[in-house]
C-alpha cells in the first residue's frame, strides 16, 4: 500500500480502527504488526491516529464522568456548623407559608387540576448509562431532566429537536419535560408528534401524558379521545375516571 505522509485514506483509517478496537483475527494482527515494523510512514500515521483515538475517548470519558457525578448522593460536609436560632425560625416560617399556600391551591383547584395532580407523576426518564441514548447533549439533558431541571433539559432537547423534528424519543421527552414544568399547552404539541407515530415505543406513554395535558388544559373530550387509542393500563384507569 502506498503511503503519503500527512494523509490517511478511509481504508487505512478502518484498518487502524480494527486494530485498536481489537477486531482483527490473530493472523491479521500479526500481518499488520509486521507492516508497521517495515513501513515507517505507516507507523508514524498509526501512532498519530492512536493518539487522536485516545484523545476522543478521553474527552468522552470526561463528559461521562460529569454524568456520573450528578448521580453521587449528596453527603454532609466535613464539619457541621451551628446555625443561629433565627435560622430555624426562618425555616419554620417557610414551612408554615408553604403549607398555607398548598392548602389554598388545594381548595381552589378546578376538578380537572385535582385530577391531573392525582394521576400525574413525571416519567422517570431513560437510564442514561446504558448507551441507548444517542449523544452527549441528549445524555446531559436526561440527567438535567432526572434532577428536575426541566428548563435546562428542554433547552438542550430543543436544540436537538431542530435537527430531528420527527424523532419520537425527543418529542416524547420534550413533552413530558414541559408537562412536568407545568406547561401543558407546549407539552401537547410535542406529545402529539409521538402519539402520531404508530411505531414508537413511547406511543402509549405519550398518549397517557397527552391526555393528562388535555385534562390540565380543561379539554376533557380531547383527553378521552386520546385515551381510547391507548392500551396502557394507566390510560384505561384514567379513561374510566373521566367517563364516569
Amino acid at each position: 500500500m502506498e503511503n503519503k505522509q500527512g494523509h490517511i485514506s478511509p481504508d487505512q483509517q478502518e484498518q487502524f480502527e480494527q486494530f485498536l478496537l481489537d477486531q482483527m483475527s490473530s493472523k491479521e494482527r500479526t500481518a499488520f504488526e509486521e507492516q508497521l515494523k517495515s513501513d515507517k510512514i505507516l507507523k508514524a500515521q498509526f501512532i498519530e491516529f492512536r493518539e487522536i483515538f485516545g484523545f476522543i475517548e478521553e474527552q468522552s470519558l470526561r463528559n461521562k464522568m460529569e454524568e456520573f457525578h450528578g448521580m453521587v448522593k449528596n453527603e454532609p460536609k466535613g464539619s457541621v456548623s451551628i446555625k443561629p436560632r433565627l435560622y430555624y425560625f426562618q425555616i419554620a416560617a417557610g414551612i408554615a407559608a408553604l403549607v398555607a399556600v398548598s392548602a389554598w391551591f388545594l381548595f381552589h383547584q378546578t376538578p380537572n387540576e385535582k385530577l391531573f395532580d392525582k394521576y400525574f407523576t413525571p416519567d422517570p426518564g431513560l437510564p442514561t448509562v446504558m448507551g441507548t441514548s444517542d449523544n452527549y447533549t441528549f445524555y446531559e439533558a436526561m440527567v438535567d431532566y432526572k434532577q428536575g431541571n426541566y428548563d435546562t433539559a428542554i433547552a438542550k432537547w430543543q436544540g436537538l429537536h431542530q435537527l430531528q423534528t420527527s424523532n419520537d424519543t425527543l418529542n416524547y421527552f420534550l413533552g413530558t419535560a414541559f408537562l412536568s414544568n407545568g406547561k401543558a399547552a407546549s407539552a401537547i404539541l410535542f406529545l402529539n408528534n409521538t402519539v402520531q407515530n404508530k411505531q414508537s415505543v413511547f406511543r402509549d406513554d405519550a398518549a397517557y401524558y397527552l391526555a393528562l395535558a388535555y385534562v390540565k388544559e380543561g379539554k376533557t373530550d380531547q383527553a378521552i379521545n386520546v385515551l381510547k387509542s391507548s392500551k396502557d393500563e394507566r390510560s384505561k384507569t384514567l379513561l374510566q375516571e373521566l367517563t364516569n
Binding site: 475517548e57 463528559n63 461521562k64 452527549y136 447533549t137
Partner: peptide
C-alpha cells in the same frame, strides 16, 4: 463530536 463519541468511546 457525537459521531466520534458514538464510534470510538461507546463502540457503537
Amino acid at each position: 463530536k457525537n459521531l466520534l463519541n458514538m464510534f470510538y468511546f461507546e463502540r457503537k
